[in-house]
Computed example of a mutant assay.
Amino acid sequence: MNNVWFITGSSRGLGRSLTKAVLANGGRVAATARQPKQLADLVAQYGPQILPLALDVTNATQITEAVVAAVGHFGRLDVVVNNAGFGITGAAEAYTEEQVRSQLETNLYAPIAVTRAVLPYLRKQRSGHILQISSIGGRVGNAGVSVYQAAKFGLGGFTEALAKEVAPLGIKVTSVEPGGFRTDWAGTSMTFAPTIADYTAVNQRADYFASGDFVAVGDPAKAAQVLLDLVGHPAPPVHLVLGSEAAAMLSKADSERKAEFEHWLPVSLSTDHAEAENFLDTPMGRLYLNNTPPGNA
C-alpha cells in the first residue's frame, strides 16, 4: 500500500491510531495537528513516510498552506480524512455563544473547508477517497449534545450530497459514524456548557462524562484497520456505522422514524397542489429517485 493520506487531528485519538496504521502498512501520511511536535515519535520511526504539518482547522489560510505543502511534498493525495474535532455536553440554551461557534467552526465548517481545498487536486486526478469522521450523533439525536450533533448532522448531509456530486469524477466520499470509542473524546477533549438545574438528564450525562467512569466499547485500532480496508473497496458506502453501540442506536432510531413517517404520511401527501402531477413523473422526480437528469426521458 503506497497511498498518500492527508489526516487532520492526527496526534490524538482515532486520528493517531489511523496515522500509525497507515504508516505501518507502508502508506505515506501528511499528518496535521495543532502541535506537530506530538508526532515526533512517528517521524523518528517512519522518516520520509510522514510529513508533519501544523494545522488549526479553523484557520482557512493554514488549510490552504497544508494542502499545498502535502501535494508539493508527495505529488498527490489519495485519501483525505477529516478527523479533527471535539465534543461538548450541556443543555441547548446553556451553551455560550463562543461554545456554539467553536463547535460549528471545528466540527462542520472545518471539514467542509478542507474538503473544498482538496477537491481541485482529486478532480484533476479523477480519483481519491474522502473520509469524514462524523458520529452516530450525526444520525441519532440525544439530549445533552445538541450543538455537537447539529454539526455532525450537517456534516452527514454535506457528505451525502457531495458523494453524488463527485462520483462521476471518480472520487468517493464516506461519512464514518462511530459510537463511543476508547479515545479521549469523552475525556480530556470533552468540554461542558454551564449547568442549568432544570435539565436533570442532561446534567447526569455531563456528570458521567466528567467523572471518567465512561468506558466506550469501541477499539480505535480496529476502526483504523476498517478504514484502511475501506479505501481499497471498489464500492464503499456513503455512510459507515462503526460499533455495536452505534448500530443499536441507529436501528432503534430508524424503526421509530419509519413508524412516525407512516403514521403522518396522509398529512404529508395532503399538501400537494390539486393540479400537481405525480412527483415520480416530474423532471425533479427523475433526478432524485431515478438518477435521470431533467429533460431526459
Rank of each mutant, 00 (worst) to 15 (best):
R139W: 02
A197H: 01
A113C: 10
M284W: 10
L155R: 01
L119P: 01
P194F: 00
T19W: 08
A84L: 07
F192T: 09
L169Q: 08
V80G: 06
R16N: 11
V140S: 05
A216D: 06
V166M: 03
G87D: 09
L39D: 02
D41A: 13
A113D: 11
H233I: 03
K20V: 14
T115H: 03
E165S: 07
L53Q: 12
R28V: 03
E262Q: 12
P236K: 00
A246I: 01
L23V: 13
V100M: 06
L14Y: 05
L14M: 13
I171G: 00
D254E: 03
G295T: 08
R123M: 02
R28C: 12
A69S: 15
Q99F: 07
M1C: 10
V267H: 10
A201P: 05
K172N: 01
T183C: 00
P48V: 14
F86A: 10
A216G: 08
G47W: 09
A60Y: 11
P266A: 00
A54R: 15
E275Q: 13
H129Q: 11
G85K: 09
F261A: 12
S135F: 03
A44S: 14
A117V: 05
L42Q: 04
D78G: 12
P48I: 12
G156Q: 08
L108N: 06
G232I: 00
Q225G: 10
